Simulated assay, not measured.
Amino acid sequence: MKSRFAAPLAGLLGFGLLLLSLAPAAAQLFETKAGQAFMIDAETGTVLFSKDADRPIPPASLAKLMTMEVVFNAIKSGRVTLDDTFVVSENAWRTGGAPSGTSTMFAKLKSTIRLEDLIQGVTVQAANDGCIIIAEGFAGSEANFATEMTERARQIGLEKSTFVNSTGLPADGQQTTVRELALLALHIWRSYPDLYRYYGQKDFTWN
Rank of each mutant, 00 (worst) to 15 (best):
L109H: 10
A37N: 10
A37V: 02
A139R: 06
A74E: 11
I57W: 01
D41M: 09
P99C: 05
A42F: 09
T95P: 00
R114L: 13
A53W: 01
M39R: 03
L109K: 14
M105L: 13
D54W: 05
N73M: 09
L82C: 08
V80H: 11
S77M: 11
L115T: 04
L115E: 09
G137A: 03
A143D: 14
L109Y: 11
R94N: 12
G35D: 11
I133R: 06
D52L: 01
N91A: 14
T85G: 10
A127S: 15
K76C: 05
M39W: 13
V124C: 11
V71I: 12
P56I: 04
G78F: 11
M149T: 04
S50N: 05
S61C: 10
E69P: 00
I132C: 04
V47C: 13
A98C: 00
E43Y: 10
K108T: 15
S103A: 15
A60E: 12
D54M: 06
Q155V: 09
G137Y: 01
D84W: 08
I132S: 04
F49S: 03
F49C: 05
R154E: 15
M39G: 03
G130M: 02
I57T: 03
D52Q: 12
A53Y: 02
F145E: 04
V88I: 13
T85H: 14
G97P: 00
V122L: 12
G78A: 09
A139M: 08
E43N: 13
F138S: 00
G101A: 07
F106C: 03
E148M: 13
A53M: 04
A42V: 14
A74V: 00
E136C: 04
V80C: 06
S141T: 11
I57Q: 10
T67A: 07
L82S: 12
V87Q: 08
V122Y: 05
S89E: 11
S141V: 01
A98D: 08
V80F: 09
G121K: 03
K51G: 00
A107Y: 07
R79E: 14
T81C: 14
T46L: 15
S50F: 01
D129R: 00
T123W: 06
L82G: 13
